[in-house]
């Protein structure tokens, strides 16, 4: 029996090493959204391209949508733009833009030059909707279900792989509803 006890340090070491090994592959910047499975916050903000049009949550509820937080000061947003255009072309899910703490004219030029994947853009100049949403930097993308509940938050660039994952999630809901 005392012989077996000598293995305790080894066992402890293996457990610790296991935790540390796992820690290596965790990205500390990927925070789970505090609003996961909670309704998208209420808001009332002007549209980017039509300043006189006031947008609210009712403008996109009733179907699953992607809400993409972007800004012209954000280099990674430029990087993911092509993927957003691809998503828009598939017509599988509407992409709503949330133009975050940006300059209106610069944002309009951006959309003209790079193409516009968004159904419409919410213009959040002060960043207060972003604050309610728990945004801490662009780009971020939220997947909302038809009831306007936040189902997933992706921080960082939308890649082909992320889009695949999102599609799988949406397909998963479809089978639940049927």
């Amino acid at each position: 029996m005392p012989r077996l006890l000598l293995f305790i340090p080894l066992v402890l070491f293996i457990i610790l090493a296991g935790f540390l090994w796992k820690g290596l592959s965790i990205d500390p910047r990927e925070l789970p959204s505090a609003l996961l499975n909670k309704p998208f916050p209420e808001f009332s903000l002007a549209a980017l391209q039509q300043p006189e049009r006031i947008l609210t949550k009712q403008d996109f509820m009733g179907q699953p949508v992607l809400v993409n937080v972007w800004a012209t000061w954000c280099p990674s947003c430029r990087q993911e733009h092509a993927q957003l255009l691809t998503i828009a072309q598939t017509n599988s899910i509407p992409v709503i833009g949330l133009n975050y703490k940006d300059d209106r004219s610069a944002a309009m030029v951006w959309l003209q030059q790079l193409g516009n994947p968004y159904q419409f853009n919410i213009f959040d100049e002060a960043g207060m909707l972003g604050l309610d949403l728990g945004v801490y930097g662009a780009p971020e993308t939220y997947l909302l279900d038809a009831q306007g509940i936040i189902r997933y938050r992706h921080v960082g660039v939308i890649t082909e792989q992320v889009w695949q994952d999102l599609q799988n999630m949406i397909k998963g809901w479809g089978s639940v509803n049927e």
Binding site: P28, R29, L31, K101, G127, G130, L131, V135, Y136, G137
Partner: peptide, 18 residues
């Protein structure tokens, strides 16, 4: 939330200002 090892008093990130 952006500069994870700073409090919001120390950080110059936009979000910390907000």
């Amino acid at each position: 939330p952006k500069c994870q090892n700073q409090n919001i008093a120390d950080s110059n990130a936009e979000i910390a200002k907000d």
